[in-house]
Simulated scan of single mutants.
Amino acid sequence: MTDYDVLRVFCGPDGRHGNTLGVIRQSGAGTAERQAIARKLGFSETVFVDDPERGVIDIYTPTLRLPFAGHPCVGAAWLLDVPELVTPAGLVGARLEGEFNWIEARPEWAPPRTLKRYDTAAEVDALQVPPPGEWIYAWAWEEEAAGRIRARAFPGRGDGIDEDEATGAAALLLTAQLGRALNIAQGRGSQILTAPRPDGLIDVGGRVLLEGTSRL
């Protein structure tokens, strides 16, 4: 039997929504077994913790292993309460400021995404889930002067995750493209904050809540 924590990452101001994340703190499972567990759990991502004190983590979607992903890093850093995470992509700095947990990451660590701009937030709201294919991050300005964006994410992997509620890696790429701090409303009501830094890193932050612990 395997225990795992269930978090919601990038919750809205009312504490609702956010992207669900599974975190398994003790697992000697190999890559194939971890992939099978991630597929069985069915979260958009599942984190396996290899060293809780050093923050060494391993990230899986239901169908593939990822060297880096945004909401898993934000959630895992909050849960483990560590100043950095060790991922295959590199060291991810982490800090807690008030109600927001922040990570520091490089845009080149993020998996490829198609950033597709629309003219209005209403157009983004009206989008239907596209057929499997490319990974699409649909976005539009809600208030450009204030850096407020409406976004939705469609992974297109055909693994049962038709729409991702909140995606830090895509927000990272959009921030790098636009070169400015953003306040992103994604999915049904999630919130992602970002800010570029002079050293090439980008801060990605959001609220994290613990749903509870379950057993596989």
Rank of each mutant, 00 (worst) to 15 (best):
D3W: 03
Y4F: 14
V6G: 05
R8T: 15
H17T: 15
T20N: 04
V23H: 05
I24Y: 01
R25I: 06
R25A: 06
G28L: 08
A32W: 05
A32H: 09
E33P: 03
A36H: 04
K40P: 00
T46G: 13
P52N: 10
R54K: 15
V56I: 14
I57P: 03
D58N: 10
D58H: 02
I59V: 14
P62L: 12
L66Q: 12
P67W: 03
G70C: 05
V74N: 03
L79Q: 12
L80M: 09
L80C: 14
D81E: 10
E84H: 05
V86N: 13
V86L: 14
P88K: 00
G90V: 08
L91D: 07
R95Y: 13
E99C: 08
F100I: 15
N101D: 03
N101E: 10
E104P: 00
E104K: 04
A105P: 07
A105I: 10
R106Q: 12
W109C: 10
W109P: 08
A110D: 13
P112W: 02
R113N: 07
R117D: 02
E123T: 00
P132I: 00
P132D: 14
E134R: 06
W139K: 01
W141A: 01
W141N: 11
A151N: 11
A153L: 12
G156E: 14
G156V: 00
D159V: 06
I161D: 01
E165H: 12
A166H: 02
T167Q: 09
G168W: 04
L173N: 09
T175G: 01
T175N: 02
Q177M: 04
Q177E: 15
L178E: 11
L182S: 01
I184F: 02
I184Q: 04
I184V: 12
I184C: 07
Q186F: 05
G187F: 05
R188L: 13
G189Q: 05
S190P: 06
S190M: 06
S190V: 06
A195H: 06
R197L: 15
D199Q: 06
G206Y: 01
G206F: 04
R207I: 15
T213H: 04
S214F: 05
